[in-house]
Amino acid sequence: MVKNSLIFIVLIGFAVLLADLFVGFNGNTDLNTLANHYAVSGPEEVGSANLVTAVVVTYRGLDTLGEVTILFLAAAIVSFLLKVEAGASLNRKLRSTSEILDTASRILVPVIFLFGIYVFINGHLSPGGGFQGGAIIASGLVLMLLAQPAKEVGHKLITLVESISGISFVLIGVAGVLFAAGFLDNKLLSLGKFGTIFSAGVIPIIYIFVGLKVGAELSGIITNLHENQNEA
């Protein structure tokens, strides 16, 4: 009884806290000068329907390159620390998966991959983008490993995708120096019609590479962690 009333008190406390936040919230409707600049001139200069994407890929494109590099370093360090000897496979005793989960995962994994790709291809039109799409692709890989723990995942394919997309990202940036106004410049391709899938210059292409790279890096981390859970 004491426990029940305690639970109720905690619940009511939560409600009071959240209600206070809710009542006290009045959204800041005026933009400051910087935000105003992006909001007004962003669509014309960049041609992206999603302003956040315009800031992330064009105005702050170098930062994105840095973030991808940090993620790459993290993946490289994880795979360095958790190095598996060649030929050593899993020697844990696992409970087998139920047949239903196995079948369901086989149907769902390609669907999740497709959805991840949808998220980063439409990064300049709708919420999401390279990082989110990459994370969704990696979660599809998690489902695959959950259903079939003993399956081998191709490290070579992951590394290949990762390197190619990283190099292409930098090459597009360099092409911006050669053929347009500067490194990672957006006007390398024409801006296209606002709001369609082929618009916003090179943003979709950069986001495809960012998404593939992030997905490959996270998948690499997950497979490395998975293969190193040997029973001591």
Binding site: L94, R95, S96, T97, L146, P149, Q229
Partner: peptide, 8 residues
């Protein structure tokens, strides 16, 4: 759930 039944 897979963690509960030691299948992870």
């Amino acid at each position: 759930s897979r963690y509960f039944e030691r299948g992870l």
